[in-house]
Nucleic acid binder design. Structure first.
Lengths: 116, 116
DNA sequence: GCAATATTAAACCAAGTGGTTTACTATTGT
DNA sequence: ACAATAGTAAACCACTTGGTTTAATATTGC
């Protein structure tokens, strides 16, 4: 029943690929919230938000503590670190671009990593 | 016809949510490749890979230069920077976790950002 | 000219997505 | 006991996804 690292990255990036879910993360980063609270600002039904939260939970980006009839959701940042680690392998590429831009507007520094 | 920043993030994270597409990016990071070359290691049909490349192109993660019958694809890193910038707003959260772990295994440094 | 090569197009399919509405369950306050 | 509240479940829908296979198009080498 081994969930591969690829499975986990699939789930995390998928979870992040919807703006409603990104907004939910953003609100949760301010602190735990019950589901009705979380859903309030969104122009969609409560079950719709509930499903989005489930996707976030499956990606382990959200934890849920049930207390009576209230489900209190909290932000679980760890998977974002995994996503960031994947991106990090390509950081030098886009940083090169920034450097290229810097060279263009302010041609002072010397280039690094010109071999591509 | 304004493509919002959210649209772009939707497309990029969606593009990254499939391991085949992540693997394609990984190969392209070694340098431009024609499509047949790119498709070779994958256990799927050429049209399937072609579709994945289209998804990557729509997310602007891949550029294509057509030269005769050969389409040469190259890695376009810029959108990864945008994705990383989104993630960056939450970096302190998972770095806190690393600090917590560090404190646990090697309880020497003092804590920062304990207020959550 | 013609066969081989590189690639997309089109039609199809099963499964998944993102939303709805209408129940339903469980808990709480009075 | 009962009404209100918090949330999920289930059924449904249109659309998308990720794959297939079978054309079709364009270019190249001989």
């Amino acid at each position: 029943m081994r969930a591969s690292a690829d499975d986990q990255l699939d789930r995390v990036f998928h979870a992040l690929s919807d703006r409603t879910r990104r907004a939910l993360i953003n609100r949760l980063a301010d602190g735990p919230r019950m589901i009705t609270e979380l859903a309030a600002p969104f122009d969609m039904s409560l079950p719709a938000v509930s499903k989005h939260l489930r996707v976030l939970e499956e990606a382990r980006l959200v934890d849920r503590a049930v207390d009576g009839r209230v489900h209190r959701c909290s932000f679980a940042p760890e998977p974002l670190r995994e996503a960031e680690q994947w991106l990090d392998r390509y950081r030098s590429f886009w940083e090169d671009n920034l450097e290229a831009l810097a060279r263009y507007v302010e041609p002072k520094k010397k280039r690094r990593r010109s071999n591509r």
